[in-house]
């Protein structure tokens, strides 16, 4: 469990105060994948680095499993960091060390293990991330996706309960991104690992996160379960992220709506409702005709969802909507 209590961060640049993070309260439960999304400069990177105090907070308290991180002295902070994994956008592997030596580094720094223990642990970690054959290579000989998997193995070397991901997939191509996210997903479940990840891509949030916080100008502007935030975005910044990810355009949609008659509704199906042949059934029974104006069908983490925008003409529309609501479909009326 990571808790932020009125944590804020200001910098002094040339005598002027710049606010990187407005006073912020936040709770990240154990075992969750928690996403922070925002444009560059929104403060998400600062927020992430406050957790292991790579950035010193200007005020407030940060508690990790009940320990006040902000009050730790230098030695305590080093020990705390040894129990926290972190991966980076540009991997930050040591180019002068082999893959195995990179992974062994946190263990060697901690100085609590014999050489034999370290060898065994490194071999196990490399096997887990699928890089056993590359142990003696240097990072420059690996692809981006392989480098990030080394980064993950290194971050997990000391068996941390928390993994911080700083734009971990932003430098990777879409296919490699999917593989790395899949690995994070599995590790989260296998190890009950809390993962805090920051990204500027809504797609990353949709694929792996349980909870999301949207940041803008040093503030968390919207927060909640991913399904809720993703399917019903409220804040303009959130809406922009979702529309970007779905390649939707609000102006274009308004134009389309002007072309059609009748009521316009947006239906959101989640879980089992996504697979049921509801729409046809209900249309037949209520005599309502519908045309589909837009839609998306995909997964949020592992839960399937569908979201359709329809125009309804004729028949008993109210009865149809009541039946949909009864079947756990969320109905939003966009034009009555």
């Amino acid at each position: 469990m990571i808790e932020f209590e009125r944590v804020h961060k200001t910098y002094k640049v040339g005598g002027r105060e710049i606010t990187a993070l407005e006073p912020c309260d936040l709770q990240i439960p154990q075992g969750q994948i928690f996403g922070l999304i925002g444009h560059s400069g929104a403060g998400k990177s600062t927020l992430l680095r406050l957790i292991n105090r790579l950035e010193e907070p200007s005020g407030g308290r940060i508690l990790v499993d009940g320990i006040d991180v902000t009050a730790l002295p230098a030695k305590g902070l080093r020990q705390f960091r040894q129990k926290l994994g972190m991966i980076f956008q540009h991997f930050n592997l040591l180019s002068s060390k082999t893959v195995a030596d990179n992974v062994a580094m946190p263990l060697k720094l901690a100085g609590e293990h014999t050489a034999a223990e370290i060898r065994t642990r490194v071999a196990m970690l490399l096997a887990r991330v699928g890089l056993s054959d590359h142990a003696d290579k240097y990072p420059a000989q690996l692809s981006g996706g392989q480098k990030q998997r080394v980064g993950i193995a290194r971050a997990l070397a000391t068996s941390p309960k928390i993994l911080l991901c700083d734009e971990a997939t932003s430098a990777l191509d879409p296919q490699t991104t999917a593989q790395v996210l899949q690995l994070l997903n599995e590790l989260n479940r296998e190890l009950n690992l809390t993962i805090v990840l920051i990204t500027h891509e809504m797609d990353v949030i949709r694929r792996v996160c349980d909870q999301v916080a949207v940041m803008d100008a040093g503030q968390i502007v919207e927060q909640g379960p991913v399904a809720e935030v993703f399917l019903h975005p409220k804040h303009p910044t959130t809406r922009r992220f979702v529309f970007e990810a779905e390649q939707l355009d609000e102006n274009e949609m308004a134009n389309d709506f002007a072309q059609v008659q009748g009521r316009i509704v947006r239906l959101t199906f989640q879980g089992q409702a996504t697979y049921a042949p509801l729409l046809g059934q209900i249309a037949r029974q209520s005599g309502v005709d519908y045309s589909i104006l837009g839609g998306r069908i995909d997964h949020i983490r592992d839960v399937p969802y569908g979201q359709l925008t329809l125009s309804l003409v004729g028949g008993d529309a109210d009865a149809a909507l009541a039946q949909l609501k009864a079947a756990d479909v969320t109905v939003e009326v966009l034009r009555a």
Binding site: N52, L54, R78, R81, Q82, K83, F88, N92, M105, P106
Partner: peptide, 10 residues
């Protein structure tokens, strides 16, 4: 970034 990563390892 390498210095930062090493710091983050404690």
């Amino acid at each position: 970034g390498i210095i930062e990563a090493t710091q983050a390892m404690g």
